[in-house]
Design a protein around this nucleic acid. Structure first.
Lengths: 110, 110
DNA sequence: ATCTTAGATCGTAAATATACGATAAGTAAA
DNA sequence: TTTACTTATCGTATATTTACGATCTAAGAT
């Protein structure tokens, strides 16, 4: 029980799931928006906008970073984050490819 | 602590997060593939293909259904599931729109 | 009417996610 | 050096997810 079986799926399926998981919380979607709209992607600005504690935002940022969707540099006492477009687009493409493929095969059974 | 604050984000952010969450497990991605590739989208065929117990697959199907990505009809003693393309494409479009928008605004700060 | 089959649901255990406050660690300014 | 500021990390509580076996339900077969 509760022994996770994620590893028994294909790498592509796991990658897509990991990407989706990174986006599966509204706070992380909001963070991505802020990162793109501000020229200076300072952590503090994100904290100011979101209805969450600083430590919680930091945790969400870490998850986005671990998933490879953003990258961060420490800049003096601050941290500068930005979107990792390369990895991001790779996933978007994979998603679209998968769904395009699914759509062409589908034959509406119900 | 642990009082979820998802409701404090915008509806669009919540919708995208819900969609992403539905796709955030490789089993559910695999299920969507099977649903598209088989003409007869019978639950049993999914169970046969996945490395999971019947009850677990049923649970994943329920989550996909709750998220609106698939719909299901009981057909005698069996259950027929299929992909809800309308809702599916709505989300895909929203995703692409969001990311396209983000991309155009970004100015590479780090 | 009973048996079989397919699937959903219940109960449960363990893992993971969410959130916060407190604290640590590092830089900049006084 | 001390102080203030910014962010990361730790500890912790609670909620949710994942997974299974067992059981319930409903339809079809005998």
């Amino acid at each position: 029980m509760a022994i996770h079986k994620k590893d028994e799926f294909s790498q592509k399926e796991q990658d897509l799931a990991t990407f989706a998981k990174a986006l599966s919380h509204p706070a992380r979607i909001a963070i991505l928006k802020v990162l793109a709209q501000k020229n200076e992607c300072i952590c503090g600005e994100i904290v100011a906008v979101l209805p969450l504690a600083q430590s919680t935002v930091s945790q969400h940022l870490k998850e986005l970073k671990t998933a490879g969707l953003i990258s961060g540099e420490t800049d003096g006492p601050r941290s500068c984050y930005c979107i990792n477009w390369k990895a991001f687009e790779k996933f978007i493409t994979d998603f679209n490819t998968l769904f395009e493929k699914l759509k062409s095969v589908n034959t509406k059974c119900c």
